[in-house]
Design a protein around this nucleic acid. Sequence first.
DNA 1: ACGGCAGAT
Length: 688
Amino acid sequence: MPQRGGELPPSKRPKLASAAAPFSSGLRKAMLLAPPGAKRQPPPAMGIESQRRSLPIFQARGALLGQLRSLDCAVLIGETGSGKTTQIPQYLYEGGIGRQGIIAVTQPRRVAAISLATRVSDEKKTELGKLVGYTVRFEDLTSDETKIKFLTDGMLLREAIGDPLLHKYSVVILDEAHERTIHTDVLFGVVKAAQKKRKDLGKSPLKIIVMSATMDVDQFSQYFNGAPVLYLEGRQHSIQIFYAKQPQSDYLQAALVTIFQIHQEAPSSQDILVFLTGQEEIEAMAKTCHDIAKHLPDSCPPMVVMPLYASLPYSQQLRVFQAAPKGYRKVILSTNIAETSITIAGIKYVVDTGMVKAKKYTPESGLEVLAVQRVSKAQAWQRAGRAGREDSGLCYRLYTEDEFEKFDKMTVPEIQRCNLASVMLHLLALRIPNVLTFDFMSKPSPEAIQAAIEQLVLLGAAERKDDQLILTTLGRKMAAFPLEPKFSKTILMSPRFHCSEEILTIVSLLSVDSVLHNPLSRRDEVQAVRKKFISSEGDHITLFNIYRAFKNISGNREWCKENFVNSRNMMLVSDIRAQLRDICLKLSIPLESSRSDTGNIRRCLAHSLFMYTAELQLDGTYATTDTHQPVAIHPSSVLFHCKPACVTYNELLHTNKCYMRDLCVVDADWLYDAAPEYFRRKLKAAKN
DNA sequence: ACGGCAGAT
């Protein structure tokens, strides 16, 4: 264990001088699970079959099969490295369980679904896409022979819209259930209902296996009618936990001090992973680390600092997997992407700030807010676990043990933190008898459900009839698109304005993060280059101009670089557009171009997005048309310096003000034409 | 005069 208390010479530590080292003395310790005699991963030279046999789970194969054969539902708890995800589907198949159908294994992430399918097809010595395959968006590598199918949870949900009883599947394995993604949470209810209905109708049974890494298994078991919980041994190594001695007022400063304390004391071959909250914070911290590292005494090893966040180009993300040059220490500054999505070998130290940036939703205002907040205990344990992948590790928590005790036990599931319009539309499309009483494992608030339904009724996707909520013909079509309801509505409106080709492009552009790249340091350049695309009609038309220019040079990456366009996202836009176009063709939606008539495009947007509009007030500010909430034009909009009388916006971003993002200039008359009843009602409400 | 974690159909 490294010595504590050794500090930089005072002259060399200007940025650290005032900081109290969080770990100077009085360390508190705790231990994570440490299975006795845990073994290292077998060397890769070992044959594939002996590798399978050397996994801890292999010892339990017979017992597991015996149990799973007789159970309708089971909850399987296994630490990482137990081999449950690759082995259980094979055991079932080899044991002749569920052979009448397909064994589905869902994953929250595309890359996981693809790499697991590849691994399992290798183990079965079959070609990928034959016995073992995968289905993710834009890619389907399955065939009539496929019996073990890995797919994203979102993909199985989409399949369920076409076949709510999931007839082709005999077993559904919901993996990584502890992550509680919005899709997994909806799937819980969908598979549970499908299982019951198949039983009631005397159809072939559906077996449900929930796989999770968490220790909090009671709610899974309870939800699935008291399903038995089976435990599997894992290969997690021991991790020592250190808590801060006293509360830290500045977690960034505390992180900095801790990084350099470890750096001075530990052998340079031991890497450090630091959990921070966002891109800007990470970039700033990386710069500070560089600056300090330059002034360290010669006795200190040199340092390579690597930022890691999702919007970082892949080439730079990949750097974190490379070993640092000999004698250098690798310090990775990461968002929660390293909590689940990216696993880095060789991490000895984890520094946990205890903070995370996460979405919150307030149904009253319909606002989603992204805020820095405390992690949950479960999340803190997940972070600590990143230090014990190959060997024992150490985790420094920049908060006290008392503070930790006050953290929430579990992270609030995503389904309780976001707008539910899409989810409710899906449930209606799944022919759920009463969406208001849908059997969620963790129920969203009644307010959130009501707000979502309100939105669907406004869009014309659903209707209230004798206390019942019914999906309209329009709603059924909307559910066919992998989009937010307001965007699918816009597409379905576009034939009326003869601009479906343009709307397809615009909707695709709006449904990715951002195709524009705005490096702070090159602001003037960005502005100069972007000038040629700017439309006085707003951001939608501007984005459309950029896409057209991109297509004219047939997706040239050099062009993207010159024009500060994110080529990764631009390619995604292109794929999404092709997919949406296919769906339009299947629904016999006429595809027309409005040519140079942008007025029609804006009319179409106004008619479908009339509830996302704002008007200029006499005092020069803006207020939303429906609730008269004060809002402002976001400075990133091309309309920032303009004062159009009436605009539609894509979303409200709540930071220090309430900003409208992605604006389009519209005519107020269009809005009243689009929804006279709606605005009459709003006007009345405003007068009272 | 602002600035956005992660993931997916």
